[in-house]
Simulated assay, not measured.
Amino acid sequence: MDARGIVGWNLRRLRVERGLSQERLALAAEIDRAYVGRVERGRENVTITTLEALARALGVAVAALFVEPEPGAPRPAPLPAGRRRRSVEPR
């Protein structure tokens, strides 16, 4: 797996572990949501500045995005589709 693939793999894994949608992560990192998707698919050459913004939004060190997955590890699962229900507090 090349470096872009490793970064994309880890980005998706960390995002899903934290229960964040691509949109929420993009807002927190102040980047475009479609760009996050392309990074996760390994289609973008990401700058160090963008990696720092994504790592900060995920609450991890930049180095966490470069951890090579175990051989044969399954791809990180996507979040369940649809919006989360808002919890309405009684007044």
Score class of each variant (00 low, 15 high):
Met1Tyr: 10
Asp2Arg: 11
Asp2Ala: 03
Ala3Ser: 14
Ala3Cys: 02
Arg4Trp: 10
Gly5Asp: 14
Ile6Tyr: 07
Ile6Cys: 03
Ile6Gln: 11
Ile6Met: 09
Val7Trp: 04
Val7Arg: 03
Gly8Lys: 08
Gly8Ala: 06
Trp9Leu: 04
Trp9Asn: 00
Asn10Met: 07
Asn10Arg: 02
Arg12Met: 08
Arg13Leu: 09
Val16Asn: 05
Glu17Gly: 00
Glu17Cys: 00
Glu17Ala: 15
Glu17Ile: 06
Glu17Trp: 08
Arg18Thr: 04
Gly19Gln: 09
Gly19Cys: 03
Leu20Glu: 09
Leu20Cys: 05
Ser21Asn: 05
Ser21Gln: 10
Glu23Ala: 15
Glu23Leu: 13
Glu23Gln: 13
Arg24Cys: 11
Arg24Val: 02
Leu25Arg: 02
Ala26His: 02
Ala26Gly: 11
Ala26Trp: 06
Ala26Val: 07
Leu27Glu: 14
Ala28Arg: 14
Ala29Met: 14
Glu30Val: 12
Glu30Gln: 15
Glu30Lys: 14
Glu30Ala: 12
Ile31Cys: 11
Ile31Arg: 15
Ile31Asp: 06
Ile31Glu: 12
Asp32Cys: 09
Asp32Gln: 12
Asp32Gly: 05
Arg33Leu: 08
Arg33Tyr: 07
Ala34Gln: 15
Val36Lys: 01
Val36Glu: 00
Gly37Val: 12
Gly37Asn: 12
Arg38Cys: 04
Glu40Thr: 10
Glu40Lys: 05
Glu40His: 09
Glu40Phe: 05
Glu40Gln: 10
Arg41Leu: 12
Arg41His: 05
Gly42Asn: 07
Gly42Lys: 03
Gly42Tyr: 02
Arg43Ser: 00
Arg43Ala: 14
Glu44Tyr: 06
Asn45Tyr: 00
Val46Pro: 05
Thr47Gln: 03
Thr49His: 01
Thr49Ile: 05
Thr49Cys: 08
Leu51Lys: 06
Leu51Met: 04
Glu52Val: 03
Glu52Phe: 09
Ala53Thr: 06
Ala53Tyr: 01
Arg56Lys: 13
Arg56Glu: 14
Ala57Met: 04
Gly59Ala: 08
Gly59Ser: 10
Gly59Glu: 01
Ala61His: 14
Ala61Ile: 07
Ala61Trp: 11
Val62Met: 02
Val62Thr: 09
Val62Asn: 01
Val62Trp: 03
Val62Ser: 02
Val62Pro: 01
Ala63Asn: 05
Ala63Gln: 12
Ala64Arg: 06
Ala64Asn: 13
Leu65Ser: 02
Leu65Glu: 03
Leu65Asn: 04
Phe66Ile: 10
Phe66Thr: 07
Val67Cys: 04
Val67Pro: 04
Glu68Thr: 13
Glu68Tyr: 00
Pro69Gly: 00
Pro69Leu: 07
Pro71Ala: 12
Gly72Leu: 04
Gly72Glu: 12
Ala73His: 10
Ala73Lys: 08
Ala73Ile: 06
Arg75Met: 11
Arg75Thr: 01
Arg75Cys: 04
Ala77Lys: 15
Ala77Cys: 04
Pro78Gly: 07
Pro78Glu: 01
Leu79Met: 13
Leu79Tyr: 13
Pro80Tyr: 10
Gly82Glu: 11
Gly82Ile: 04
Arg84Ala: 14
Arg84Ile: 10
Arg84Leu: 15
Arg84Cys: 01
Arg85Thr: 14
Arg86Cys: 02
Arg86Thr: 03
Arg86Ile: 09
Ser87Leu: 15
Ser87Asn: 13
Val88Glu: 11
Glu89Lys: 12
Pro90Val: 15
Pro90His: 13
Pro90Ile: 14
Pro90Trp: 11
Arg91Gln: 09
Arg91Phe: 10
